[in-house]
Amino acid sequence: MEEHKAITRLKRGDIGGLRVLVHRYQVRAVRAAYLVVRDRALAEDIVQAAFVRAYERIDQFDAKRPFGPWFLRIVVNDAIKIARRRERTVSLEAAREGESALANLLADPSRGPASLAESEAAREAIWDALGQLPPPQRAAIVLRYYLGLSEAEMADELACPPGTVKWRLHAARNRLRALLDPRCP
């Protein structure tokens, strides 16, 4: 079924329309949330709640617009909020331990940056580095590099001024780069 038909049905109160949208967007949405909150079960909870909210508020959705970006914006914004709340409780010791492990990994002279990017270690390094970004910066990386949004689209979806998005992305990239480069503490 086409997306706009599913939305038309959903606006009429037909839950079958939501089922189509869930099956179309659930994996992408959970993965995006997972990259922000770093916990699969929590990511699934966020996406489930977002679908329920989308169902309850579908009347507010402009059917002329694509559903995906609207919905993924809800998911990413929720993920940012939850990650912020959650990470306030992470102990300082745990954070330091993570940084130290990353530094050791990246300090390995046998791994050049190019080969690192192709390997398991690269995934681990980027995963760890992402985890050390503040949630909004992490979400900026996810929106830009995982969901493939342009800076203008990000500004639109996050309801932020373009300058804020640009700055957030710039800061995220700098921080990520610093975390991934052992010569740049």
């Binding site: 990017a117 980027i126 990386i141 493939g148």
Partner: peptide, 14 residues
């Protein structure tokens, strides 16, 4: 460079 790695991480986790 970054996108494929993020896809791999996400697919591995979910």
């Amino acid at each position: 460079r970054l996108s494929p790695i993020l896809y791999e991480i996400a697919a591995e986790g979910v």
